[in-house]
Amino acid sequence: MIPAAARAWLLSEEPASPLQARLGVAYLGWLRFLRNPLAVAGLIIVLALVAVAALAPWIAPHDPLAQDLANRLRPPLSPGHLLGTDEFGRDILSRLIHGARVTLQIVALVALTAPLFGLLVGTVSGYFGGWTDTVLMRLTDIFLAFPRLILALAFVAALGPGVENAILAIALTAWPPYARVARAETLTVRSADYIAAIRLAGAGHGRIVLRHVAPMCVSSVIIRVTLDMAGVILTAAGLGFLGLGAQPPLPEWGLMVSSGRKFLFDNWWIATMPGLAIFIVSLGFNLLGDGLRDVLDPRGAGR
């Protein structure tokens, strides 16, 4: 798999550069990850989603928006339409493939913004304590007090429907758990001797929080993010389903479930196929998150 020389270089007990040291640790984590077959399955699903999204125009058999009323409501396995067609005769497989792009866009944008904000709020809150902590955490509590979808609905209602606003609304509702996780981690880290040592070396608060405390919280947050991705996809789908997220004719999976529900009894595949896609991708992220937990857990950072 990996040539013996590269393996020896990675596992070297005497790395010659910071890069080699880091890669060595990453490689050990990767080996630990590989021991968990379910996590590998999750990773494959997520990678498949990325690949499908990237190659959508080339692998989709039809134009996802092209209507063909003569061929409407074809069941799965019809000639030319592997997963059948919907009420306008559009190819469901092609719509699912292009829908992967929308899903990935939502996931990526939420995963980039919400955790960073949560991490910042959580570490600052936990590190400084006192009034800072009280104010930031009560704010977090307010956000946590509302069900996620309801709050996202309120934001979208205020901002107007559309994919961009749905992403914004989801990000705005997604950060509080990350702030909580980061704060909990910070509370255990802040009294550690290595933090006392760097404080004794004269380091300022900003440096301690950003360079010494935050890195210890990142892995917990990453695990949480991966596990939350299923929820994000479902919320996006939910918003789409309610007509407040992506707008027709965009092939968004939640929207496809929503429009298929009218035909659920006679033409089950229209709602079921996108539902299955949501299910599989959510499952993939969950399995991946579980696997990452074993690899990234700071307490298991040894060997």
């Binding site: 001797d193 290595y194 040592a197 760097i198 010494h212 700071p298 950072a301």
Partner: peptide, 11 residues
């Protein structure tokens, strides 16, 4: 510090 396992940043 007393405990060398706790006084070095693990990362």
């Amino acid at each position: 510090f007393q405990d060398p396992y706790a006084s070095l940043h693990p990362r």
